[in-house]
Write a protein that binds this DNA or RNA. Structure first.
Length: 398
DNA sequence: AAAAGGATCAACCGCCTTGAC
DNA sequence: GGTCAAGGCGGTTGATCCTTT
């Protein structure tokens, strides 16, 4: 575009801020608020461009910034949200109060990305780097992983759609924030449209799920983000009556959670409706498919686009002979160990990891395959989906 | 003790979006 | 509808710190 830079004025200082400059900026904002960033430097007596002032304030001087090491909970949240949203740091930051998008971005690039890579997970796609999951029962394991992949793909697609929708809605509610940087990275809850009461991803899970008592019990609260994380995302716990197992059954198969890919035909059309329409109504107008979830209004049936899922999975898993297209409906049984697995995955880097210590297997995961990798991947996807499940309806994310 | 290499993170750059006119 | 200013965002850079040799 050739737009001139904002700092093209000769004499404007660049580089690290001095304590004196910080003091000037703080004092001015304290007294007047930031107002127009472009006008601020002159009024505050700073030889900086407005953009530089804004960044300094947003990323460093703001009083509600938490500095220091990231907690395990925060790491989990970052990884999970990154799996869903990619490099949308500001969106991720809204779920990490007191952390800035810049800080999260740096932490991802310097820590988490490497850690995932060591775990054998592609930090970009969050998919296993190897697809050598087949073993004696490889088909089952592959199918189970496919189910995780499929759910994640669907969740991601819906999150994308909703993100677009919310961004439009949000713009109407952000005009009066005192500290505008908070809108993206302070973590202060954004004003939510009154109609944003339906978390499509929860609906999605609820629509094709039927929790069992065993699952609910094994899940406990299902709150993987508990602890010290203050994010609105993290504070949600499943009620006892409404505990939704992550992988649960659309057709109810005793205590073993089942993921059910049902009805590729109807699924496609419904999903298209949902994605194309940014209004709230479509999220609520799905047909009733479950009477098992009393707390979920309308018990919307959310059947994701199998077409999209299939494309995605075929791209990710080069095993077309065992793809989901074999039948119209694929039932795969998966486990139910989310928090434990993910926490283990995250505890230290791969050199610290000891997931397979009990079994005495090679702990080097970068080339590993077989059951440990299978369990790791399963837990990984479980954890991501669990975050989706636990996201509040007023999350700015979904 | 010093040099080299790696890790970290604050800050910048350029593009995009939004809103006002 | 077009233009422009301003803010926001993500990618990248470079200075500094830390660790290793």
């Amino acid at each position: 575009m050739g737009r001139s830079p904002c700092c093209d004025k000769v004499g404007l200082k660049k580089g690290p801020w001095t304590p004196e400059e910080d003091q000037k900026l703080l004092a001015y904002i304290d007294e007047h608020g930031h107002g127009s960033w472009r006008a601020l430097p002159g009024k505050a007596g700073l030889q900086r461009c407005g953009k530089s002032c804004r960044l300094r304030w947003t990323n460093y001087l703001r009083p509600d910034i938490k500095r220091g090491k990231f907690t395990l909970q925060e790491e989990q949240t970052i990884i999970q949200l990154h799996a869903l949203l990619g490099n949308r740091w500001s969106a991720i930051a809204t779920h990490l109060p007191k952390r800035t998008d810049n800080e999260i971005k740096n932490y991802w690039n310097t820590h988490l990305k490497k850690r995932l890579a060591k775990m054998g997970i592609d930090p970009i796609t969050h998919k296993p780097k190897n697809d050598t999951l087949l073993s004696s029962d490889g088909q089952t394991k592959n199918a189970a992983n496919l189910s995780h992949m499929a759910q994640w793909e669907s969740a991601r697609l819906e999150a994308e759609a909703r993100l677009v929708r919310e961004s439009k809605l949000r713009s109407h509610h952000l005009t009066t924030q005192g500290y505008t940087p908070a809108a993206s990275s302070s973590g202060s809850p954004l004003p939510q449209p009154a109609t944003r009461s339906l978390d499509v991803l929860k609906v999605w899970n609820g629509g094709w799920s039927k929790p069992t008592e065993a699952n609910a019990a094994s899940l406990g609260t299902g709150n993987i983000n508990g602890g010290d994380l203050e994010s609105p995302t993290s504070t949600l716990t499943f009620s006892e009556n409404n505990a939704q197992p992550l992988m649960n059954s659309a057709i109810g198969e005793s205590s073993i959670p089942v993921t059910d890919f049902v009805g590729s035909t109807s699924g496609s059309s419904e999903s298209r409706n949902i994605v194309k329409d940014e209004g709230e109504h479509d999220w609520k107008d799905g047909h009733v498919s479950s009477s098992h979830l009393p707390d979920q209004n309308n018990s919307t049936s959310f059947t994701s686009s199998l077409h999209e899922m299939t494309i995605s999975m075929e791209g990710a898993w080069n095993n077309p002979d065992q793809s989901l297209r074999t039948h119209n409906s694929v039932h795969v049984h998966v486990g139910n160990t989310m928090e434990e697995g993910f926490t283990s995955l995250l505890l230290g880097d791969s050199s610290d990891r000891n997931l397979s210590a009990d079994s005495g297997k090679d702990s080097d995961n970068s080339t590993g395959s077989g059951s440990d990798d299978y369990e790791d991947n399963k837990n990984y996807w479980n954890s991501i989906l669990n975050l989706v499940n636990s996201s509040p309806s007023n999350s700015p994310m979904f």
